[in-house]
């Protein structure tokens, strides 16, 4: 897709503007790339998240987090419960961990609510099945959904064992009461999901949900022994969703 110098010279020739030739020297996107490499080294980063489910007590705690994400990403509020779009949502232990729930676990855990979102698996089935690389795993582990590329085949939704993917069954703009003008919406017929705010990560910020949780969620580089998420995981008892499928989820739940 990059524009070659020759292409550009051709057009300049056609338009007959000679003064522009002076600027051609720098019109090389490659040069920008070199500089960017120095700014953002592709080091061994593996983003992960730990959710301290003990600290999430009231509905307000959850709402703050969900709203921060949904407002920032223009996630529509669709009333039809079985065709909703949700990037991060709340469910019970029984539904979040159907393979390990048990009749006689503590009442407190049974009543506890869990924040659910894309697990950004290390071994993501959705990425494996996507026929156009619309969903792909970045070197830092974020499983991104490229809504420009998605053809809406819904294969990834069949492959995801966590129900974390959303298909736009309705034109999303009809269900937005307000928009964040800095972020796009989506269109009907594409799949979307949590993207771990990769744009913010690239700018050195934390995901919206982690920021809004006020210390109830830990985020960081799993490969760094001093990162908050690594500490949270090593100091507490954590579980992940459906570990038996070995998709290696990167969202840990502190019990």
């Amino acid at each position: 897709m990059a524009i070659s110098r020759r292409d550009f010279l051709k057009v300049i020739g056609f338009t007959g503007v000679t003064s522009a030739v002076a600027t051609i020297g720098g019109v090389l996107i490659g040069r920008g790339e070199d500089i960017l490499k120095e700014i953002k080294p592709a080091s061994k980063v593996r983003w992960a998240m730990a959710i301290d489910t003990r600290q999430f007590k009231t509905d307000e705690d959850f709402q703050k987090v969900i709203e921060a994400c949904h407002k920032a990403h223009n996630v529509p509020n669709i009333p039809d419960p079985i065709r909703q779009v949700k990037w991060i949502w709340v469910d019970t232990f029984e539904k979040a961990f159907p393979t390990i729930e048990h009749e006689y676990i503590s009442e407190e855990i049974k009543k506890r609510k869990f924040l659910l979102l894309c697990n950004h698996c290390d071994n993501p089935p959705c990425v494996r099945v996507c026929p156009v690389k619309a969903t792909f795993r970045r070197p830092d582990g974020v499983v991104v959904q490229d809504m420009h590329r998605c053809i809406g085949c819904k294969f990834c939704m069949a492959a995801c064992p966590y129900g974390s993917r959303n298909y736009n069954f309705y034109p999303p703009r009809e269900f937005l009461s307000q928009v964040n003008p800095e972020y796009p919406t989506r269109t009907t017929g594409v799949v979307e999901k949590c993207i771990l705010c990769y744009e913010r990560l690239d700018e050195g910020k934390q995901p919206y949900c982690v920021e809004a949780s006020e210390g109830k969620m830990f985020f960081g580089n799993l490969n760094d022994p001093n990162s908050p998420v690594r500490k949270a995981i090593s100091e507490n008892i954590v579980i992940v969703r459906k570990p038996e499928l070995t998709t290696k989820p990167m969202v840990f739940y502190i019990i």
Partner: peptide, 9 residues
Amino acid sequence: GQVYYINSQ
């Protein structure tokens, strides 16, 4: 995962 574009200047 790039953020900035660097122009000819």
